[in-house]
Amino acid sequence: MKIVVIGGTGFIGSKVVADLSERGHEAVAAAPSTGVNTLTGEGLAEALAGASVVIDVSNAPVWEDAAVLEFFTTSTRNLLAAEAAAGVGHHVALSVVGTERLPDSGYLRAKLAQEKLIADSSIPFSIVHATQFFEFVRGIADGGTEGNEVRMAPVSFQPIAGEDVARVVAEVAVGAPANRTMEIGGPDRFRMDHFFRDALAAWNDPRVVVTDPHARYFGTELSDRSLVPGDEAILGKIHYSDWPGRIPTGE
């Protein structure tokens, strides 16, 4: 089966392409570097010819509110139109757990707009909501840093390995369209401030983690349910305690 992966040269996309190829599918990595641009439509018709499934794991190159909204809505409209013309039977999109619960985030408002376009289209779909990736926890710490302090809310946090995300996305893609949103998260739930206090200690990072109920996560205040999936979520197999990247080489 031919499966086109939009954003297929990126962090998650390259893992999805590798997983699908190992399963025996014709996985095509589509990105501007391979001549496929969803913003302009360049190369879409050629890439999607004969495709049964399209997976969109692309991400916006900028995070400013208006720009990120323009990216996700324009690229998704172009992609859905090209899929309809090519007769694609399943659209799979990767999004974020909590998208509908964090309206103060411009990025997540853009993802929600993207999801609505997908759900309102004529193409059968599956939307996968993932929690934060293990690989991005340092970036989250940096985002909460003020001087020598890392301000974190005492809320639930259930990160997942990128490898698990890619595996589940590939499994969803080769299955029947769900025509709904499903959630995936890591196998363990932590309290966010405790998690980052332990993580920084493991990194030998001198910053101090401060528990702050009003700490903002990329511009939005969190509740205990903001970042965690529901009871029916698919759980990853890799525990953070077993993930090699939790302590960078040489530290």
Rank of each mutant, 00 (worst) to 15 (best):
4 V>P: 02
8 G>Y: 09
9 T>R: 14
12 I>S: 09
13 G>P: 05
15 K>T: 08
16 V>G: 05
16 V>F: 09
21 S>I: 07
21 S>D: 12
24 G>H: 04
27 A>C: 14
30 A>M: 10
30 A>C: 14
31 A>W: 12
33 S>D: 15
34 T>R: 12
36 V>H: 02
37 N>P: 14
38 T>P: 12
40 T>Y: 04
45 A>Q: 09
51 A>W: 01
51 A>I: 09
52 S>E: 14
55 I>K: 02
57 V>H: 02
61 P>C: 08
64 E>M: 05
65 D>K: 13
65 D>G: 07
67 A>I: 03
68 V>N: 05
68 V>T: 14
70 E>H: 14
72 F>P: 07
74 T>A: 03
75 S>D: 12
76 T>R: 00
92 V>Y: 01
96 V>Q: 10
100 E>S: 13
102 L>G: 10
103 P>R: 02
106 G>D: 00
107 Y>Q: 10
107 Y>M: 12
109 R>N: 13
111 K>F: 10
111 K>L: 13
115 E>H: 05
118 I>H: 00
118 I>Y: 00
121 S>A: 02
127 I>A: 06
130 A>F: 05
135 E>F: 11
135 E>P: 12
135 E>I: 13
137 V>K: 02
137 V>P: 06
142 D>E: 15
147 G>D: 00
150 V>S: 06
152 M>Y: 03
152 M>Q: 09
156 S>Q: 07
159 P>H: 04
159 P>Q: 02
160 I>M: 01
164 D>P: 05
173 A>H: 02
175 G>C: 04
178 A>C: 04
180 R>M: 14
181 T>L: 12
187 P>E: 01
193 D>I: 00
198 D>K: 11
198 D>A: 13
200 L>E: 05
200 L>P: 06
201 A>C: 06
203 W>T: 06
230 G>W: 10
232 E>Q: 15
237 K>Q: 15
238 I>F: 01
242 D>E: 15
244 P>L: 13
244 P>A: 11
245 G>M: 02
251 E>H: 15
